[in-house]
């Protein structure tokens, strides 16, 4: 979002450091990808799931082990402790290698992370390997330290990790900083729905508008705004649209019915959009538009305002 950062009331003050959830990575395809970093809450929930999974495995095995020990005692007359010994080895493996095994073999995901759509990747965008995973997970004992004296014995509180995450720009715990990894949230992929059925909207008369043509960006904002209009009430939609509608009407030197702009700005925007898209299809002159872009700041700012309100 590019919204109101430029209009700082006191330009002399240094710009505040923003805590951003976005991570930019340039891929070998020369495409810049934006990732969303995962914050403490989803990560704690994912941890809780992993903790439960390990807990269930261990409890199940300890029941099996006790039964075996009783069996040994009954048959051999002496509980050998062999089953408990194996249990301890499993415990050790789960404690220090559960995450390493998961993250190495499932490309940065453990069961809990998978459940919450999280993934560990290298901060430069490539996948993590065995050593990276081992480093970030062997450092867990320090991250897991909590700062209260009574600390819950069996559920590590990750106090150090929390502070580290808030102190670092990329929401990294200490293990992440050392291994240079980040945890990202992979959102579900949904193609934005088709905005409006263009055929049913009547374009404006050519005689009603002047020669001004807004930028692609402005048109895209109208397009997406109309596509999302079902999430707003009618009044709210018109109220949001009126800012841009009146600005556009002025720029376009709109000479038609002014009530359309005042009372039904959403409809006005839709009709402007249809008109301009239609006219664009008629004349494929893209250069003319880019040249006129310098004098459309007002409309663009209104568009940004609209984007800001929408998100």
């Amino acid at each position: 979002m590019i919204a109101p950062a430029e209009q700082q009331p006191f330009p002399d003050e240094p710009e505040p450091i923003r805590v951003s959830e976005a991570l930019r990575i340039e891929t070998p395809e020369n495409v810049v990808l934006d990732y969303q970093l995962a914050g403490p809450a989803p990560r704690l929930l994912a941890y809780a799931i992993d903790w439960l999974v390990r807990g269930v495995i261990l409890s199940g095995l300890s029941i099996v082990a006790s039964i075996l020990e009783v069996g040994f005692a009954f048959i051999l007359g002496d509980a050998s402790g062999a089953a408990v010994g194996m249990l301890l080895i499993v415990w050790f493996t789960l404690e220090f290698f559960y995450y390493v095994i998961c993250e190495t073999f499932f490309n940065g995901k453990s069961l809990g992370k998978h459940a919450f759509g999280l993934r560990v990747i290298h901060a430069r965008g490539y996948p993590i390997n065995f050593w990276t995973s081992l480093l970030r997970n062997f450092l867990r004992p320090v991250d897991a330290m909590a700062f209260f004296p009574f600390g819950i014995r069996f559920f590590p509180m990750y106090g150090v990790a929390l502070i580290s995450m808030f102190a670092s720009r990329k929401l990294q715990r200490l293990g992440d900083i050392a291994a240079q990894t980040v945890v990202i949230a992979e959102r579900r992929i949904i193609l934005p729905r088709e905005p409006v059925i263009l055929e049913r909207i009547q374009p404006l008369e050519r005689s009603e508008i002047g020669s001004f043509r807004p930028s692609y960006r402005t048109l895209a904002v109208i397009d997406e705004f109309l596509g999302r209009r079902h999430v707003l009430t009618h009044e709210r939609g018109h109220a949001l649209a009126s800012v841009m509608a009146s600005e556009l009407a002025e720029r376009l030197e709109f000479r038609g019915d002014q009530r359309l702009v005042k009372d039904y700005p959403m409809a006005f925007l839709a009709r402007v959009y249809v008109t301009l898209v239609k006219s664009e299809e008629a004349s494929e002159s893209e250069h003319a538009r880019t040249e006129s872009q310098s004098d459309i700041r007002g409309v663009d700012e209104a568009a940004e305002f609209l984007v800001g309100l929408n998100q």
Partner: peptide, 19 residues
């Protein structure tokens, strides 16, 4: 500049594909 929704859709598609 064809819109943020479309851009973020393709961004996430490409990002998951990349991973």
């Amino acid at each position: 500049g064809w819109g943020q929704d479309l851009e973020s859709y393709l961004n996430h598609l490409a990002a998951r594909g990349h991973n």
